[in-house]
Write a protein that binds this DNA or RNA. Sequence first.
DNA 1: GCCGTTTTCGGCCCGACTGTTTTCAGTCG
Length: 585
Amino acid sequence: MPMKPKQLLSFLKMSTNSDIANIFIQIADSLNILGENVFKIRAYQKASKNISELPKDVKNYSGKDELQKIPGIGNDLADKIIEFIDTGEIKYFEDLKEKIPLSLLELLRIQGVGPKFLSVLFNEFDVKDITGFEKALDDESLLEVKGIGKKKIDEIKKGIDIFKTSIDRTGINKAYEIASSIVKEVENIKGTKNTQIAGSLRRWRETVGDIDIITSAEDTKPVVKAFTNFEIAKEVLASGDTKGSIIVEDGIQVDLRVVKPGEYGAAIQYFSGSKLHNVRVRTIASKLGYKINEYGLYEGDKKIEGKSEEKIYGKLGLDFVPPELREDRGEIEAAQESKLPKLIQQKDIKGDLHTHSTWSDGKSTIEEMALAAKKLSYEYIAITDHSISSRIANGLNEKRLFEKKKELEKIDKKIDGIKIFMGSEVDIKSDGTLDYSNDVLKELDFVVASVHSGFKMETHEITERIINAVKNPYVHAIGHPTGRLIGEREPYNVDIDKLIEAAKKYGKALEINSSPKRLDLKDLHARKAIQKGVKIIISTDSHRTEHLSFMKFGVGTARRGWTQKSDVINTYSLKKLIKWLDGFK
DNA sequence: GCCGTTTTCGGCCCGACTGTTTTCAGTCG
């Protein structure tokens, strides 16, 4: 998916790590157009990804030796990172920009346009940006270039339309909805079996570039045909014997792979990625004298496994790796040593501890929320409406807070089979104090403290501010601890390590907010927290009953963070939870 | 440009689809 220039810019401003990651990817793209060694290009791409995922800022690394411990960072790239930290630029990149303008790189994101074609356009048609690119496509003499015909040009013109209208990456909620409905449709195609979401969506990444779906059938071609004829398809990008590719709403691409039933395990493994994980898997296979592709695991020409994903991992000496862990973040080593975590599952969740009602800015009543939670077989729900400072969200003053408490207790008595906790999502004000006095807070069953204003504070200020809330004896958890809105707002500058340390010291939980816009804590932060022994609460921040279903996104994020059932407070039974809450009194 | 339980040099995952070809190159995932 193309990335809008505006978003590229905001990405650029984020941090040293994303600055460097961005430069490395642009170096890779430039080298690609220059026809450089593909492995050198791959090295820059890999380094870019690894740096963007680092848990701490490269500025805080002790020196070159420590930098070189980052996978994919060797002597050369460590020097370049240091150069960037010292001078704010990398000369190698500055020189490359003289050769290949940045406005040209963006065009690589157009469907059907690769480095070779772009190189021809740049060298022979003086194309430097999208305007020149579109002009060149109408130039008759382009057809004289070897390998370029009318169809190719038409395909690229379509690609430009998609490039111009599509957003960068699709949020998980929308992707999940589209994917689920397409899975249902594919299941209705005659002869299909085992239709399943693959790709980054199966790994529950917070955003996805495209949607991958795998199915199996004895006769594959008619399935692809039926798929590309779906009404939802606005554009058909490819339609072959085993693979179809369509564009649906908002420029979202959906790929379907159809394999024989005996190849299903290999295919779902292959198409679930991540790319880096699969490279590791393949390398292991080849060291054992095997070959692995999307059809199976082979010893010479003999297929020894293909049907079962589990068995493929098994034959490679690996425990089955849950898709959420397949990011080359240590899961291969853990699978070799049988040390993979037993990940939390959605069925482990016993309640939701961060929800809103019509008392503040929710759209459903306390009773509706409780009944919806009961329907999910939850044992409890906390209704945590906003506190007074959140005026836009109709936050409750003390008087209304106690009125609500009265009503809530009435409803709690009325409804059997679910415990309703009286809670609050209390604002952490700019000075670090909370919106209610301790005398008020101690009357509540459950308190989640969150920042809702003053996001632009310096690191030490906002960190201290949130830690102040952690220290308050009546606070149970910190809500959406970094405050990011995916694709909309950067996280606040909170020092996550210090926050985790404080949460550990004071025995407070950190939230994974399951709202698909937030997913906060994110996977890597959650992993850090549980490594330090900090408890997690996975909540939906529901503002209407339908939002309770966001829990799956929070659980997915938790799983990506290697979280186990025992790490999560709201897997506790009601009895155990009450005991935990009593510990605060 | 990185990396090492076959290697400090010589590897680095592998196949589908498409268009322009007549055996393949480019692009994609």
